[in-house]
């Protein structure tokens, strides 16, 4: 598998995800600067977390209009895998690669902590090492993770299996108490219709090593390596 990580001014999880990718790929991913107009030939593009362009205007809004994102969109339309984490998820919704919007958290505060997620669909390249119904632990760190989409679109997404992860209890119960940010249906991550694009607010790269407190996130990168190699 070949992978690239896009670096915007203000990205700050680019190194973290590169470290996690390298551990699974046994090779370094390419780091692609936002002003580049050509994307190297890769199997996976990661749009990392951070504060691209300082979150000015709206989280992800300016990055969505950068030259490199035009290229990412074109490739994604042709089937390339794209993973957007946190600010990367916001950029993917802003650029129209994923449906819905990410609004301010319900209590209006930035929140950084581990959360439990229920895996909703394991039949994708991102989640083949998980099982639907599994509960995994990833950290969140965001102020705008409150995902929303129109009810009709939401029902269609559910029917298509486009919901990737939901915030849940340790036992896998999806309830209001386990929802950290007010997201519709406790949604933490979603796929596009073709399942080649995944966006999620939690950070799999932050718990991909036991020394840091857990390695549930590592399986996502292992899944991608297995699927795309």
């Amino acid at each position: 598998m070949k992978a690239a990580v896009i670096v915007f001014p203000g990205s700050n999880c680019d190194r973290d995800v590169a470290v996690a990718l390298e551990a699974s790929m046994r090779a370094k991913p390419l780091m692609v600067w936002h002003r580049d107009t050509e994307l190297p030939k890769v199997d996976l593009v990661v749009v990392p977390g951070g504060f691209s362009y300082g979150d000015y205007l709206r989280c992800g809004a300016m990055a969505a209009h950068s030259p490199i994102m035009r290229e990412v969109k074109a490739r994604a339309d042709a089937g390339m895998r794209v993973l957007g984490i946190c600010n990367g998820f916001q950029i993917l919704t802003e650029s129209g690669l994923l449906p819905g919007v990410l609004m301010r958290n319900k209590d209006l505060k930035f929140i950084c902590k581990d959360v439990h997620l229920r895996v909703e669909n394991d039949r994708t390249d991102f989640c083949r090492y998980y099982r639907s119904g599994d509960v995994v632990r990833f950290p969140i760190a965001h102020a705008e993770g409150n995902w929303f989409v129109e009810p009709k679109a939401y029902r269609e997404m559910e029917d298509n299996g486009q919901i990737a992860f939901r915030y849940a209890t340790l036992e896998g119960k999806v309830d209001p108490e386990s929802n950290p940010n007010g997201s519709l249906g406790n949604v933490a991550g979603i796929y596009n219709e073709k399942f080649n694009v995944l966006g999620l607010m939690p950070h799999p790269e932050r718990l991909a090593e036991d020394l840091l407190g857990g390695s549930d996130g590592r399986l996502m990168f292992d899944s991608l390596v297995e699927a795309l190699s």
Binding site: N12, C13, R15, D16, V19, A20, G49, K109, F110, I111, C112, K113, P139, A141, H203, E205, R206, L211, L212, G213
Partner: peptide, 25 residues
Amino acid sequence: IYQQYDHMVMGDTVQRPGGDAAVVR
């Protein structure tokens, strides 16, 4: 307080807030 601070970015926080000292690799 500390849940409003990103205490994990950079991927080297071995001991998070709440202990005697933070440990950063």
